[in-house]
Computed example of a mutant assay.
Amino acid sequence: MPRHTGELAVHGHLRQREGKTLLVVNGRLSGRDTFLSTTLRLEQPVRVRKVAVRILTFDDVTVLSPLDPVLPQERAGEEWSGTLLIPHGARPPVIPEDLAQAAAEAGVDTGGWSLAEARHLLTFLSEAGSASVRAERIGMIVKALGGRS
């Protein structure tokens, strides 16, 4: 079984935090598991064939945290680039049962949504604070997408 199924070119800048050098990614990685440990092939500022990292994705940033210290602290602020070896493909969004049922009843095909669209809509739905707000948002999503041609 392969140790990774995909490769993703990444780049960013090095940041020093609490005595550790972190690799901050330019642009947030979405659709990837966070807190996942994987391998980075670092090309610059130094060439390191295998760096074990943990992917940490927050609201607005993704950080690769080396599991072992491999970069000198004086390199903080420098640009870096490399290839992230992804152990699996992008996480497909999971359509909640209540939304899937309402969409099916209205003839809306949730399988045709782009990943970005699905993530946006599912985040909107997941932020509903009560059952009534959730039901209202499901209705809005189905109505909006049902009117597309």
Rank of each mutant, 00 (worst) to 15 (best):
E136W: 13
A76G: 10
A106F: 09
A106L: 06
E18A: 12
S126W: 02
L121Q: 04
I141P: 00
D33W: 10
V25T: 11
F58T: 09
A90V: 02
L99P: 05
V133W: 00
L121S: 01
L115K: 00
E136I: 05
Q101D: 10
W80P: 10
P72A: 10
R32V: 14
G77F: 03
L125T: 13
T5G: 06
S81W: 06
Q16F: 12
S65H: 04
S65M: 10
Q73F: 07
P69M: 01
A131N: 09
A118P: 00
E43T: 15
G111N: 08
I95V: 07
L145D: 02
I141S: 00
T83R: 01
V53N: 03
T34F: 10
V61L: 07
K143G: 15
D98T: 15
G31M: 03
L115R: 00
K20R: 14
V133M: 10
P66W: 15
L145S: 00
V108L: 04
V46Y: 11
L125Y: 07
S65A: 05
E136H: 12
M140C: 07
Q101W: 09
R3G: 15
R49T: 15
T38Y: 03
L122I: 03
D33Y: 04
L23P: 05
E43R: 13
T39Y: 04
P66A: 09
V94H: 05
H4W: 14
G19N: 11
G27N: 11
T5W: 05
V63C: 01
T21M: 09
V10R: 08
V61H: 11
V63I: 07
